[in-house]
Simulated assay, not measured.
Amino acid sequence: MNSKPTSQTLLDWYDRHARKLPWRVSPDDRRAGVVPDPYQVWLSEIMLQQTTVQAVKDYFLKFTRLWPDVHALADAADEDVMKAWAGLGYYSRARNLKKCAEHVSHHHGGRFPEDEDALVALPGIGPYTAAAISTIAFDRKAAVVDGNVERVVSRLYEIKDPLPGSKPAIRAAMAELTPEDRPGDFAQAVMDLGATLCTPKRPTCSLCPWSEPCAARKSGLAETLPVKAPKKEKPTRRGAAFVAVRSNDGAVLLRRRPPKGLLGGMSEVPGSEWSEDFATSNGHDHAPFSGDWKARPGVVRHTFTHFHLELTVYRATHPADTPIPQNCWWSPPSELDGEALPTVMRKAIAAGL
């Protein structure tokens, strides 16, 4: 058998085993003349950044139902977009999503550019996303390298240098592998191979279309690649969160976070700053107004990209006529689920209630 990996071998496998995804045009449909919707390709790629396919599916369907094209998303209220994104995490993506939709709608007539360089100039689109949109939406040849592709290519060529240092070699190999014909399908085929067979643990080499030429399979190193540099230990920050409940209807007091920075523009319960030297014993001193604040048992834990967070949650019930700070509002129980609350705040409210 041919010991050199070929794109056609993988495309033949993809034609039979392609995953059915709500944003994807199947190989059969592509052959029948159906072309991908660049808006849906862009939307899915932004959502999939550092997020699993399973987590993204429902959000993608919700967004395309609410805003079926880029003009509709551009015209949406910022608050509505943040509410629809709530729970998906990495909220700067949602802010940039809105900015990008506005730019494409107002400056490109609603048409996404096909060229990688033009795509990278848009808000929230980096080199990977630009390559993915260019090749998947427009079938232009580009080296698309996500986590699945890094794993497949590292094993295929037995690239032992640790990530992220090995990224240039992986990208160069992917560029050489990518064919002129059907580059979009090829990019998705490598992603599918990594997601279904060439998995991080216990790869199913016996079913892999590239099993024969795979250098790591031959050496027995497949499960050890790619090598990743040791992660730095994350610091732990602490803080206080205050769940104020209105006595007459159970509404919860919320406020809006600043538009920029971590969780920018999202809703939250009032609270302290988060810091490594936060004095938990004085947490109640940060209450938004006076009241019979009682600390709830335990702490709420949440992990962000760069740090762990531990929140002490305080609860108090207040009369309906209690004066509230500016930028705050009462959210009744029937509306709470629809608020733009990040996961950490939903945890805090659950602990408070």
Rank of each mutant, 00 (worst) to 15 (best):
D161A: 15
D192M: 03
V56W: 11
V153A: 13
V344E: 02
S219K: 11
D249F: 06
K228C: 03
M174T: 15
G194A: 11
L119F: 12
A143I: 11
P68D: 13
H107K: 14
D69G: 05
V81A: 11
H302R: 03
Q40G: 00
E79R: 12
P333C: 12
D292L: 07
N327T: 07
P68R: 08
T312D: 09
K294M: 12
K99G: 02
R237S: 00
S92T: 13
K232F: 01
L163N: 01
Q8V: 09
I125A: 05
T135Y: 02
F138I: 04
A195Q: 14
H17P: 00
D117V: 13
S219M: 04
L225V: 07
S331G: 02
E158C: 03
V56I: 14
V56D: 04
S267M: 11
L309Q: 01
V104W: 03
L163G: 02
C100A: 06
D75T: 06
L156M: 07
K167R: 15
A86M: 08
K83G: 05
L61G: 04
V243S: 00
P27S: 11
A55K: 13
P179K: 06
H308C: 08
N96I: 01
A215L: 13
R237F: 02
D29G: 00
S206L: 05
I125D: 06
V120Y: 01
N2H: 08
P38G: 05
H103D: 13
I46H: 02
L197A: 10
W13A: 03
R296H: 08
R171E: 13
W329I: 08
P127F: 07
P168M: 08
H302L: 08
D29K: 13
W293G: 02
A279S: 12
D69V: 03
M174V: 14
L311F: 10
